[in-house]
Amino acid sequence: MKHKKKILAFSVGMSLLLGGCFNMDNTNHKTNKAKNEQTKETPEEKYAREHYVPVQEYTGQGYTLRNGEKTDKIAKAHRDEIDKAVKKFFLDNYKTEVIVHNVVGAVDGASVFVESVGEPHFYTYAIVPIDIDEEKVLTDQVWSQEGQVEDSIAGALYAMIFDEEIATLDHYLQTFVNNHPVIGKRIDAIANVGANGYSTPYYYINTIDEAFDSLFKTYIQNPNLSKDEWKKQLTRNDFDPKGIILTIQLYMKEPNIEPNKAIFDQIVSDIENMDGLPRGSYTVILNDNNVDKKTAIGTKDNSLERSDPNDIIKH
């Protein structure tokens, strides 16, 4: 937003010149006042300007966590230490090699966003405690939120086991996006601030069925099973479709356009009637073009959503 310069009146000792400056000041004051009235923002417009960014531009910039200002600076100064500690944490505790994409300060620590190497493929995070007074990163105390990584691995194994059905869903969504004015999130945004387990630009997967707990335990005991061997560990009949959630989330391609109801209804209808999709519970969300850069969330009051208890069940 353009900033208006204040007009300073200088005393120059000559009445004619003083009068000229005075008249100029009054004229500019009226002009500036008129401009200010025309450009006055509502609280909603101010929030949107300060928080929102087009989804196709968002890579995670501006993402913040509560009370993370001090820890963020400390974490950035100790980035190499954090990277090494988090990689070791995932190898030791989850038998998984990861790439560290981003570190964001939080209360008493930093959230570290990672991506697994190879399959099962997923995005998640760990937490590194930080002693603010000592400005010390406690790399021997890395931890993860209960169930977060376990869910990410289980969902990724599900996608690996049902790869043909996942390919059907991927092909449908890519074709739909190509033929309609909608888009998904950027991969670098998913890597930097996503942490939603198995994720693509168009959807992510969460697990809540006990069958996936068993699948995760099998992975920890033997993470090197082949894909064919994994396919023997879980069949479509081994879990309740309500026990796995596939959240499809798309955005309008153009700015300043409300989510299109006809497009939303088409996606819902397609998912309801399509054969060959992965077994599970489907949520469908269509947002406008904006993402809140501080939270990485695109869902707002104007978003169109089909979800629990009215989610789409595919058996």
Rank of each mutant, 00 (worst) to 15 (best):
I7M: 04
I7D: 02
L8H: 11
F10A: 09
M14V: 13
S15C: 04
L16F: 02
L17Y: 10
L17S: 08
L18E: 13
C21A: 13
C21G: 15
M24S: 14
D25N: 08
N28E: 14
H29S: 06
H29F: 12
T31F: 07
A34W: 03
K35F: 04
T39D: 09
K40T: 13
P43W: 09
E45T: 00
E45G: 02
K46Q: 11
Y52C: 09
V53Q: 11
Y58Q: 07
Q61W: 07
Y63F: 15
E69N: 11
E69F: 10
A77P: 03
A77V: 07
E81F: 05
A85P: 11
V86W: 10
K88A: 12
F89C: 02
H101G: 10
V103F: 08
V104I: 15
V104P: 01
D108A: 14
S116R: 05
S116I: 07
E119L: 09
E119V: 01
T124S: 15
V128Q: 00
P129Y: 02
I130L: 10
I130M: 03
E134M: 14
E134Y: 01
E135F: 00
L138M: 13
L138W: 04
L138V: 00
D140S: 14
W143G: 04
Q148I: 13
V149K: 01
V149A: 05
V149E: 04
I153A: 06
A154W: 07
A154I: 08
A159D: 02
E164C: 00
A167T: 14
L169F: 03
L169K: 06
D170Q: 06
Y172I: 13
L173K: 00
T175K: 14
T175R: 15
V177D: 04
V177W: 01
N178V: 04
N178S: 15
I183T: 14
G184P: 04
G184L: 01
K185F: 07
K185G: 11
K185V: 05
K185R: 15
G194F: 13
Y198F: 15
T200Q: 10
Y204N: 13
I205L: 10
N206F: 03
T207I: 09
A211V: 03
F212S: 07
S214H: 05
K217R: 12
I220F: 02
Q221P: 00
S226H: 04
S226D: 07
D228H: 05
W230S: 11
K231L: 04
Q233H: 12
Q233E: 15
Q233N: 08
T235D: 13
R236M: 11
R236N: 15
N237Q: 14
I244C: 03
I245D: 11
T247P: 02
Y251H: 12
Y251D: 02
I257K: 15
I257S: 03
P259N: 08
K261M: 12
K261G: 00
A262K: 15
I267H: 09
D270G: 08
I271P: 01
N273I: 01
N273F: 01
G276R: 14
S281R: 14
Y282F: 13
Y282A: 12
I285G: 01
L286F: 03
N287E: 09
D288E: 11
D288Y: 07
N289Q: 07
N290T: 06
N290Q: 11
D292P: 00
A296G: 09
I297W: 01
K300A: 14
L304N: 07
P309V: 05
P309T: 03
P309F: 06
I313E: 05
K314T: 02
H315N: 15
